[in-house]
């Protein structure tokens, strides 16, 4: 059945069959008149994916591929996805990015423990949307948050992007644009279409001129949170 949702400021009509995605979109349900985009996985497409990736359940296929469809379309609306766990503190969103399994969710979870759940919130635990707007660069929660349902239908100004790795000691350093570009491009959906690639690169250009990017080595401790937050925090 078709649902109407509003995600990252876009009015989306989405056709869903399975409960997993239906549950994830609940916070985003909103009626609208003018539709920005429609997400539907055709039966044929669904079968092709199923044949190729036979380890995925039907509801996982729907969840993953509606997400990919949304994030590809987002490129046409001045936005893109960053594979990261996003935490909002004092109105700014900080995106901790790394390959799966490194510990980005573990680190943002420590933020909640350190600051308390009323001061720190997970905006999206795996795939937040970044949007370039006239008044600044914003992070939006979306229904597609990876293995967890940690996402919020809110937006916050992007505070910083942090690439995280495991380390015995806690350390953090700002990195150059030259270092940041390949790291960011590895953690987003790279479109095949030429115009969309150019749009992505132009958004990246604006982002890097306005937002700092860091590398963080961290262990699992409250001290790790202090090390990262003291360096990345933006004055409110």
């Amino acid at each position: 059945m078709q649902e109407k949702i509003c995600v990252a400021g876009l009015n989306v009509a989405i056709n869903l069959k399975y409960n997993k995605t239906k549950n994830q979109i609940q916070k985003y349900v909103k009626d609208f008149e003018k539709q920005n985009l429609k997400i539907q996985i055709s039966d044929e497409e669904f079968l092709n994916i199923k044949n190729e990736l036979n380890y995925l359940s039907d509801e996982d296929i729907e969840y993953i591929y509606t997400g990919i469809a949304f994030y590809e379309a987002l490129l046409n609306f001045n936005g893109f996805m960053l594979h990261s766990s996003g935490v909002v503190v004092d109105g700014y969103a900080y995106l901790f990015s790394a390959d799966s399994g490194v510990g980005k969710s573990t680190h943002t979870d420590l933020y909640l423990k350190h600051f308390g759940a009323d001061k720190a919130k997970i905006i999206n635990d795996d795939k937040p949307a970044i949007k370039i707007k006239e008044d600044g660069i914003y992070v939006y929660g979306t229904p597609w948050s990876g293995k967890t349902d940690k996402n919020l239908n809110i937006k916050a100004k992007l505070g910083a992007i942090i690439f995280l790795e495991r380390s015995e000691n806690n350390w953090i350093e700002e990195i150059s644009n030259q270092e940041a570009i390949p790291l960011i491009l590895q953690q987003t959906i790279r479109p095949k279409d030429k115009n969309l690639i150019l749009k992505l690169l132009d958004m990246l250009d604006l982002l890097l001129k306005n937002v700092k990017v860091y590398k963080l080595g961290c262990n699992i401790s409250s001290e790790a949170v202090q090390t990262s937050y003291n360096k990345i925090k933006r004055e409110v």
Partner: peptide, 19 residues
């Protein structure tokens, strides 16, 4: 391939089948 100046860096990225 596309070439773009991204924040002062000249970046070449493949698209389509090349990617």
């Amino acid at each position: 391939y596309v070439l773009r100046n991204v924040a002062g860096n000249y970046i070449v990225v493949p698209f389509g089948e090349k990617s």
